[in-house]
């Protein structure tokens, strides 16, 4: 009997968590503009920073989307970071899952952040904001 209750609760929790994870995955949220010290050259106008790990299913598809956008929009660079080799950045900028994508403006300030695989249209929209934002 207990087992049946545990099963029902687990499946209900799973269904709820699944819907929430799916809905929030890849959605860009505004960030207050902390600077990310990549130690890599930034894009002329904006940079798409992708955190990945070896054990990450959607990282490959995300890489493809971001590379396409970077190719399409002049002055935008796509940088993929192995989260394991930059745990300092992972901790400093609260990367909990992979892929996590940051949109940086030309000065390296974080404009937007998304965890999970973002859609191409959302990347372009977030990018437009980063390119427009004046930075000192």
């Amino acid at each position: 009997m207990t087992g049946f209750v545990v099963l029902a609760v687990t499946l209900a929790a799973g269904a709820l968590a699944g819907f929430l994870l799916k809905r929030r995955a890849g959605a860009f949220r505004a960030k207050d503009g902390a600077r990310m010290d990549l130690g890599e050259p930034l894009g002329e106008r904006a940079t798409l920073v992708q955190f990945s790990t070896a054990f990450c299913q959607p990282c490959r598809a995300t890489r493809r989307v971001l590379a396409e956008v970077a190719e399409m929009v002049p002055g935008v660079r796509h940088v993929e970071i192995d989260a394991e080799s930059r745990l300092d950045l992972v901790r400093a900028h609260d990367v909990m899952r992979t892929p996590t994508v940051f949109v940086l403006d030309k000065s390296g300030k974080i404009v937007k952040k998304a965890s999970g695989q973002p859609r191409k249209a959302d990347v372009i929209a977030a990018l437009a904001l980063a390119v427009d934002t004046p930075s000192q």
Binding site: T10, G18, T53, F55, Q57, L87, D88, V90, M96, R97
Partner: peptide, 26 residues
Amino acid sequence: FLNAAFGVCLGCDMYLLIRRLQPGRI
């Protein structure tokens, strides 16, 4: 269940969470 129904890999996400707790090599 999350993997079967939604294609979400919880076990995969565990990897970074575990690594985050360990001392980092930079």
